[in-house]
Design a protein around this nucleic acid. Structure first.
Length: 259
DNA sequence: ATGACAATCAGAGATTGA
């Protein structure tokens, strides 16, 4: 099974790119972030016509996540549990019904800048809720994964210019600590389980020729439960997408499971 | 020190992103 996570930076602006990518790369499951669309405005019919079940959790203008799947999806949960007052659409869960059931969570973790400040506090609080939800899901001791735009640069090697990010919400010590605390529950960070070393990025800013200079950061991740990690055969970043026409500033990250 | 770039909503320019 081929699963991809992709922050598309607006489904309206990225529609042609998205359709082309689905046709070319044919993920079995695609987790999308920043659809920037309400559910009613998502191009559901067009995506369904490509053979996908479509489950969205959208909002107006910002954020918004979706799961597209060629296999049936069940038990969809919209919104990260733990705060009924949180109106930002950043979390969606579903169970993919294949040979064996796989619980999949798509997430768009808050950016948190400027830090310190209320937006950073929201990021840290969101990560605490993510930690709590992860404990609940791990308790099932079944294959499950959480993937998406974490807005976390885990280590200095995950940025082309690490010193620039040390006081940024994506890489501050508290951010990295919260991410480690998540990993320490028993997750495998799929990409680093397969590939070491610098110059592996999933985001390049639109500004200042960041792509041409390969001035990127790696912030889109797959976290796998132990039972899911056992099934992993491959994890790769589809960097070439950043060089296409009308690219998102993020590129897809792929996970292949032997399931 | 600032802006560079893109998307959204709205219908100009502010806001958000990372």
């Amino acid at each position: 099974m081929k699963i991809a996570t992709f922050n598309i930076n607006g489904v309206k602006a990225r529609f042609e790119t998205l359709v082309q990518w689905l046709q070319d790369s044919a993920p079995d499951v695609a987790l999308l972030q920043e659809i920037k669309s309400v559910d009613e405005a998502f191009p559901r019919d067009e995506i369904e016509a490509l053979g996908y079940q479509v489950e969205t959790h959208g909002q107006k203008s910002f954020n918004g996540v979706a799961i597209l799947s060629k296999l049936p999806l069940e038990d969809v949960v919209r919104g990260l549990p733990g705060d009924d007052d949180d109106e930002q659409a950043r979390w969606i869960e579903a169970t993919v019904i294949g040979k064996t059931a796989l619980r999949i969570c798509g997430l768009y973790l808050p950016n948190g800048n400027p830090a310190p400040g209320p937006k950073y506090l929201y990021k840290l609080a969101w990560m605490e809720r993510l930690h709590a939800r992860a404990i609940e899901l791990l308790a099932a001791e079944e294959p499950f994964l959480m993937a998406g735009d974490y807005n976390v640069i885990p280590q200095d090697e995950d940025a082309a210019t690490p010193e620039v990010w040390h006081s940024d919400a994506l890489a501050m010590p508290q951010t990295r600590q919260a991410f480690r605390q998540l990993l320490n529950l028993g997750f495998t960070e799929a990409f680093r389980a397969q590939t070491q070393g610098p110059e592996h990025y999933s985001f390049w800013d639109y500004q200042a020729g960041a792509w041409q200079r390969n001035n990127g950061i790696r912030i889109d991740h797959f976290l796998l439960s132990p039972e899911c990690a056992d099934l992993m055969t491959k994890c790769e970043i589809q960097a070439e997408m950043r060089g296409r026409e009308k690219p998102s500033d993020h590129v897809p990250v792929w996970l292949e499971l032997d399931n």
